[in-house]
C-alpha cells in the first residue's frame, strides 16, 4: 500500500465515526420534530425538549471531536485504524449469536447450543472433535437442566426435554 493510499485510508477512518454520528443526529432530530406535545406542556417543556438538548450537544461535541482531531493536538490519530481481522471476528461472532437466537426458536435450546458451541469452539481454534463433542453435549444438557428445571428460566424446549 502506498503512503498516499495509507493517508487516504487514515483520513476516511478518522472521518467515519464523526460522519456516522452526524447522520445519527440528523435522523434522531428528524424524529424529534415529529414528536407530539403532551397535554399542558406545549412549548419548550414538552417530550421533545430533552432529546433536543442531547441532539444539539451531540452535534457540537462531534464537531469539537473533528476539530481536535484535525486542528488540535491530535492525540488519537493512531487509534482509528482497526484491524480487518478484528472486524471479521466481531461480525462472525455476532452472526453466530444471531444464528443461536434464531435456531433456539425452531429447534429448542439444547440442540441450538450444541450447534453453536461446536461451530464457535472449532472456529476459535480447538480442532479436535474428541474434545469438542463431549464438551458441547454435556454443557448444553447441564445448562438446560440447571436453568430450565432448577432456576425456572423458560428456555425454548425441544424433543430432548
Amino acid at each position: 500500500m502506498t503512503e498516499e493510499s495509507k493517508k487516504i485510508k487514515r483520513n476516511v477512518g478518522r472521518l467515519a465515526v464523526p460522519i456516522l454520528l452526524v447522520v445519527f443526529c440528523i435522523w434522531y432530530g428528524s424524529i424529534i420534530l415529529e414528536l407530539p406535545q403532551g397535554p399542558g406542556t406545549e412549548g419548550p417543556l414538552g417530550p421533545s425538549f430533552v432529546p433536543w438538548v442531547w441532539a444539539a450537544l451531540l452535534v457540537v461535541l462531534t464537531l469539537v471531536d473533528i476539530g481536535t482531531d484535525y486542528l488540535g493536538k491530535a492525540q488519537d490519530k493512531a487509534h482509528v485504524a482497526i484491524e480487518r481481522k478484528g472486524v471479521f471476528d466481531a461480525l462472525t461472532l455476532c452472526l453466530m449469536l444471531v444464528g443461536l437466537a434464531l435456531l433456539m426458536q425452531y429447534v429448542g435450546f439444547t440442540a441450538a447450543v450444541i450447534a453453536f458451541l461446536a461451530v464457535s469452539i472449532r472456529w476459535s481454534g480447538i480442532r479436535s472433535w474428541k474434545v469438542i463433542l463431549p464438551y458441547v453435549v454435556i454443557f448444553a444438557l447441564v445448562v438446560n437442566y440447571v436453568f430450565h428445571h432448577i432456576l425456572k428460566v423458560p428456555l425454548p424446549q425441544d424433543w430432548l426435554f
Binding site: 461472532l93 453466530m96 449469536l97 443461536l100 437466537a101 433456539m104 447450543v113 453453536f116 458451541l117 464457535s120 469452539i121 476459535s124 481454534g125 480447538i126 474434545v131 464438551y135 454443557f139 445448562v143 436453568f147 428460566v153 428456555l155
Partner: peptide, 19 residues
C-alpha cells in the same frame, strides 16, 4: 482453554438477555 471458555460464556450472555 479460552476457546472453550468464551463460547460457553456467550451462551450465558444469551440466556441472561433472554431471561
Amino acid at each position: 482453554p479460552p476457546g472453550l471458555l468464551f463460547p460457553s460464556i456467550a451462551v450465558f450472555c444469551v440466556i441472561g438477555a433472554f431471561a
